[in-house]
């Protein structure tokens, strides 16, 4: 197979599998959370309720696609597309296995951070363009929350970059051949995990949505597939952050016996489940608490982590 064709196949394959995994997550999350709440979850449509997601997609597609007359139409339509695009773009740099992966940028990690900072726009603009109170409140919360947590999301990764000596995700995985970075970078790992949750605005940090306070926050006015895209965008975020944690701290595809792709899948799956566990058990902090954790706890921790890592590297 010639080179362009091969890359096209890889791109389409990765996109298709990523989308499939993301859709399957909706089912997985409902089943797992049901398990934790002593329920059974969706089990009616198809075997084990697996076709539930198809039913949901059909439902979303056939719902009325309503744009409020008071909304800023072009921005309103643009916002949900941004979150999907930014999320899916980030999958381009993730190395799934030694030979599978769309592109190996020497700034792969920065690309991921850049795309995640693009994702902020969808929430902020969606909230603004809806032109309603709760949406605006959600959008404002999202802007401040995601902007703050982005700062030390980047900082927490600086230690990993320093240890690996490269921004390329492939090099970072290779550098973990003799020990995963979760051990020397435990602090960075915790900070990245928390920042990742805040960045994907998942529970417990779902203040931009906060059903009990803001109706549905920034996507209050959205319906049908536009809502669906926000919904899928959230799960793209979960898959992405889980895959990034796997790559950066848990040695990516590295592991004995099993094929590399299987190791990558197992580790990513583990972190997805952790995301669901967080959703199933933790209460939402207050907004000022969230910002205080961010700037007064996470930022110093990330700085300390970088400082210690730097000192260690300098001493070696």
């Amino acid at each position: 197979m010639t080179e362009p064709w091969r890359s096209l196949v890889v791109i389409v394959g990765v996109l298709a599998i990523a989308l499939l995994v993301i859709m399957a997550q909706v089912w997985l999350e409902r089943r797992i959370i049901a398990r934790w709440q002593d329920r059974r979850g969706p089990n009616r449509v198809g075997p084990f309720g697996l076709l539930q997601l198809i039913a949901d997609v059909i439902k979303l597609f056939t719902k009325e696609d309503w744009t409020p007359p008071f909304a800023d139409r072009p921005v309103f339509v643009l916002a949900p597309a941004v979150v999907m695009t930014a999320g899916m773009m980030s999958f381009a740099v993730i190395p799934f296995a030694p030979t599978i992966g769309i592109v190996d940028l020497n700034i792969g990690l920065l690309f991921f951070l850049a795309m995640s900072s693009m994702g902020v726009y969808s929430v902020v603009l969606g909230g603004w363009a809806s032109n309603s109170k709760y949406s605006l409140l959600g959008g404002m919360r999202a802007a401040a929350q995601m902007l703050s947590y982005e700062v030390f999301m980047g900082l927490s990764l600086a230690g990993v970059v320093a240890l690996a000596g490269s921004f390329s995700l492939r090099d970072i995985v290779e550098a973990q051949r003799h020990g995963w970075f979760i051990v020397p970078q435990a602090l960075g790992f915790v900070v990245f995990l928390i920042a990742g949750i805040a960045e994907t605005h998942r529970l417990p940090f779902d203040l931009p949505e906060a059903e009990s306070e803001l109706v549905a926050g920034y996507h209050t006015e959205y319906s049908s597939m536009k809502f669906g895209m926000f919904f899928v965008g959230e799960y793209v975020g979960i898959a992405l952050v889980s895959a990034m944690i796997t790559t950066l701290f848990l040695g990516g595809w590295l592991g004995p016996w099993l094929p590399p792709l299987a190791w990558f899948g197992i580790k990513t799956f583990f972190f997805m489940c952790f995301f669901y566990l967080m959703r199933g058990s933790l209460p939402r902090p207050r907004y000022d608490q969230l910002m205080a954790y961010g700037w007064k706890l996470m930022l110093p921790l990330a700085m300390l982590n970088l400082l210690v890592t730097g000192a260690f590297l300098a001493a070696r």
Binding site: A34, R35, W36, Q37, D38, R40, M278, S281, L282, Y293
Partner: peptide, 24 residues
Amino acid sequence: MPIYSALRSLWHVFKHTFRRPITV
């Protein structure tokens, strides 16, 4: 930040993985 209570509730919820559902 109530780290201990957060971790404890994570653990308590996780233990339910090994419980039977009570749904009829």
